[in-house]
């Protein structure tokens, strides 16, 4: 049944893409408005997941866990912005990379001290732990459907906020010309803190939703952070629309690459070559895409700044 398989893989790609978008949206805003490169963005994702797991364990309610993770991570994010990150805005990108790299080291060790070095459990709600029959022969995990739904809702909400509200206008103004926006009376200090908090909250949503699918463990933020960076660089730094397009591209390309490429190689070449070249190329695919995009459009697909 290649058609149901295709549909299932498309849903998988969509789900990965939407979660990457939640991470990338916050990252691209922070990057775009504050011209700040924040490697510790993945750390907020990790903190969100750990908070969710802890609250889920204590309360037994998944919804409460997500809510607590969102609020808690947003507060931590804003506190971080006010204390450590604010002095870095005027520094070079190099210093920002290092300071936030230091934050990763510190946060990872603190989490290890508080929660231990082993992964902790965060289970999906029992009601969603089974499959749903979408079409004859196409059973899809209910939980992943919910993840897709929440991802779509968040994307829509973000679109409405950025495009149709005053805050959104300020954000866009800040991303395209910070000095001018500031001169026009936008309170950038407050705006930065709020934007950072919102970005952190989106991280927490992604962390709490992906926790049951992946693993709540130290270092979980780093790998996904690199993917999120790839997404915003492809999409164009500062552009939320670019982040959405980039995230979906990366999500689908990665899913397709992992399944289709080895099969393709098996059909075309000897099994030995297939088992080596297939996985190699599949893991490289998104980086090839990024290098390719940067080669021809050095500012990404949707540059925020003219």
């Amino acid at each position: 049944m290649p058609l149901t398989l295709l549909a299932e893989q498309a849903l998988n790609g969509l789900q990965l893409g939407l979660m990457l978008f939640l991470l990338a949206a916050g990252l691209t805003l922070v990057f775009g408005i504050m011209d700040m490169i924040n490697l510790a963005h993945g750390t907020l994702y990790m903190i969100g997941a750990y908070l969710a797991a802890t609250v889920a364990e204590a309360s037994g309610s998944f919804v409460a866990a997500i809510a607590a993770a969102v609020v808690g991570t947003a507060v931590i994010g804003m506190a971080l912005e006010l204390t450590v990150l604010r002095p870095l805005y005027r520094r070079s990108h190099l210093h920002q990379v290092l300071a936030t790299f230091a934050l990763i080291l510190i946060a990872n060790e603190l989490v290890r001290i508080i929660w231990g070095a082993q992964p902790i459990a965060l289970n999906m709600p029992a009601a969603l732990s089974g499959p749903v029959e979408l079409a004859p022969g196409l059973r899809y995990p209910a939980y992943r459907l919910v993840v897709i739904g929440v991802g779509l809702a968040a994307a829509l909400l973000l679109y409405v906020v950025v495009v149709h509200t005053r805050v959104g206008m300020w954000l866009r103004a800040g991303a395209s010309d910070r000095e001018m926006a500031s001169a026009m009376g936008v309170n950038t200090a407050w705006l930065f803190t709020a934007a950072f908090g919102a970005g952190a909250a989106l991280c927490a949503v992604a962390g709490a939703l992906l926790g049951p699918l992946l693993a709540v463990q130290v270092g979980m933020g780093e790998n996904i952070l690199i993917l999120a960076f790839v997404v915003i660089v492809i999409g164009g730094i500062g552009s939320v629309r670019g982040a959405l397009v980039g995230a979906l591209l990366v999500g689908i390309l990665d899913t397709v690459g992992r399944t289709a490429l080895p099969a393709l190689f098996r059909a075309l070449a000897s099994p030995e070559v297939a088992s080596e070249a297939g996985p190699a190329l599949a893991s490289m695919l998104i980086y090839v895409l990024m290098a390719g995009v940067l080669c021809f459009r050095p500012r990404g697909l949707f540059p925020a700044r003219g």
Partner: peptide, 30 residues
């Protein structure tokens, strides 16, 4: 030759991307 066409943050990211590619090449080649 490719990376130096870009500037600033993009340069940081593209050097990272190439290094990741090299990493996956090494990991995958028996």
């Amino acid at each position: 030759a490719v990376s130096l066409r870009t500037r600033g943050v993009y340069f940081i990211m593209i050097t990272l991307a190439f290094a990741q590619m090299a990493y996956y090449v090494v990991v995958s080649l028996r």
